[in-house]
Every structure is written in structure tokens, then in C-alpha cells.
């Protein structure tokens, strides 16, 4: 499984997203789907950069593979505090903007744009598996 490991820091975002986009391209996804895959990856990664390692540094690992009968499988893992992004409550997208809290929007995009998502805590790791099916 092709893998990339990086310090969980915003300056590595571009490289990590390009890794994912490269695999999505090889798997034959359309430009529009690749944009959504990039978006999901960014939202999950930025969340890890900001919250997984409070007061300390850590890594993030991306595993990417494509399977003909499934699509693209992206696994994102970190050794940070236990956190299941899929259980994060959806934001209220109907409130007036003056009261609008932006937190949670990224999670909403993740839920809307992946076909299947699974979270597990294994030892000290958060492991998020995201599946993007071929149309």
C-alpha cells in the first residue's frame, strides 16, 4: 500500500494533498471528483494538524490504494488524542451568518463527499478509512 508519512503541520498540507490527488488521478476519477477527494483530505488533515496533538508534535500517515471493484481507499492515521471525526455533530447550516459558527463545516463536507467512512482506535492510533467509489 503506497504510504506517506509527515509531521502533522500545515506546511505539509500541499504535499499530502498532491499525494492523494495523484492516486485519485491514476485511479481514473474525474476532475470534479478529484476536487472532492482533495477537499475531504484537506478537512481531515487540517483537523489533525489543529487538534490531534495539543501542546506537542506528532505525525500523520496516509495510505492510498485503488481497487478496481471498490474505488479509491484512503486511510488517514495519527497517534493523537482519541477523536472520531464521524461522530462530530453537524453544524446548523440554516442559521443567520451573524451567529454562524464555522466549526464542523469541514466534517459536514467529509460526510457528504465520501461514499463510505469508518473510524477505529487501534492502540494509540486514530485510523480513519475513507472510500470513494468509482461511478
Amino acid at each position: 500500500m503506497p504510504e506517506i508519512k509527515s509531521a502533522a503541520k500545515i506546511e505539509h498540507l500541499k504535499r499530502l494533498i498532491e499525494f492523494v490527488a495523484g492516486h485519485a488521478e491514476m485511479a481514473g476519477f474525474t476532475v470534479n471528483r478529484i476536487n472532492k477527494i482533495k477537499l475531504v483530505a484537506e478537512e481531515v488533515l487540517v483537523n489533525i494538524f489543529q487538534y490531534a496533538y495539543p501542546g506537542t508534535d506528532g505525525d500523520v500517515v496516509l495510505d492510498c490504494r485503488s481497487e478496481d471493484d471498490v474505488g479509491l481507499i484512503l486511510e488517514i492515521s495519527d497517534n493523537g488524542i482519541p477523536f472520531n471525526i464521524l461522530e462530530f455533530p453537524d453544524p446548523d447550516v440554516t442559521t443567520d451568518f451573524s451567529e454562524r459558527e464555522i466549526g464542523g463545516l469541514g466534517v459536514l463536507f467529509v460526510k457528504e463527499m465520501v461514499d463510505e467512512a469508518r473510524y477505529r482506535r487501534k492502540g494509540n492510533s486514530n485510523i480513519l478509512t475513507l472510500i470513494f467509489r468509482k461511478e
Partner: peptide, 10 residues
């Protein structure tokens, strides 16, 4: 604009 994330919306 080809791409926007929640950070862009923020």
C-alpha cells in the same frame, strides 16, 4: 476559483 475548503469559507 477551482477549489474551496471550509478554511476558505471561514
Amino acid at each position: 476559483l477551482d477549489y474551496i475548503s471550509s478554511a476558505g469559507l471561514r
